[in-house]
Design a protein around this nucleic acid. Structure first.
Lengths: 108, 108
DNA sequence: GATTGAAATATTGCATAACAAGGCTTACTG
DNA sequence: CAGTAAGCCTTGTTATGCAATATTTCAATC
């Protein structure tokens, strides 16, 4: 297991949390979401993001609307549903728990 | 995606970190490692732990020795190698980075 | 008007990880 | 010597992230 793979594995499942968090601040579309994740030093590619967005939409956590773009094809703006907001709150708790668990195990 | 699945996914790759951290304090064997994780509210089953220990041993991060048990068959005590200690230090950094990234994204 | 290029959407195939379920071996105890 | 507990391990399933690629839309240029 090399270093990059470790980081990939550590992030698994956490991306779902990050995407809901980003959408909770402002409706957004795929390339912008990727840019925001990148700004937080969290590199994500399209092949990763699109399936997550589709899963979350199918789970009723997100909906979307089409919006014209100044250049190029229209953008698919995603936004949280009420269920999405509840899921985000749950993931907030799960994340806090995980951080606490690691603190206990690491002895810090 | 239900709540349990979310937690499973969030933990991916992090278990590897936890196991190295536990072994850095004291050599240990599988059932005891599981008990320590459970004490930190991190439930792990044998079918998860054994493959990780084998992977880490094959990667040169761990070695083991056999030790008699007061009752039952002998125990396989795992211990960190120098490479394992280095990996642990690297995972410490990766974890800190991840926590920082989430803080940025979550806006807390 | 045809072509090129960029922006945006989306899918497919692969590698890996966690878990459920079950099996195997060793030692102690009645 | 039969039963039980402790300990070790493997197989099959499912889900995830990613590389690679395809498709669509629009604008600008030739």
């Amino acid at each position: 297991m090399n270093e990059e793979n470790v980081k990939v594995q550590m992030r698994k499942g956490i991306l779902e949390y990050c995407i809901l968090a980003i959408l909770s601040r402002e409706d957004s579309y795929a390339p912008k979401i990727i840019a925001e994740l990148k700004a937080a030093q969290m590199i994500v590619v399209e092949g990763t993001l699109y399936p997550i967005l589709t899963r979350q939409k199918n789970a009723g956590l997100l909906t979307y609307r089409w919006e014209e773009s100044p250049q190029g094809p229209p953008r698919k703006y995603y936004m949280l549903t009420e269920a999405g907001r509840q899921q985000l709150a749950m993931l907030d708790e799960a994340w806090e728990e995980l951080v606490e668990q690691i603190k206990v195990i690491r002895g810090k």
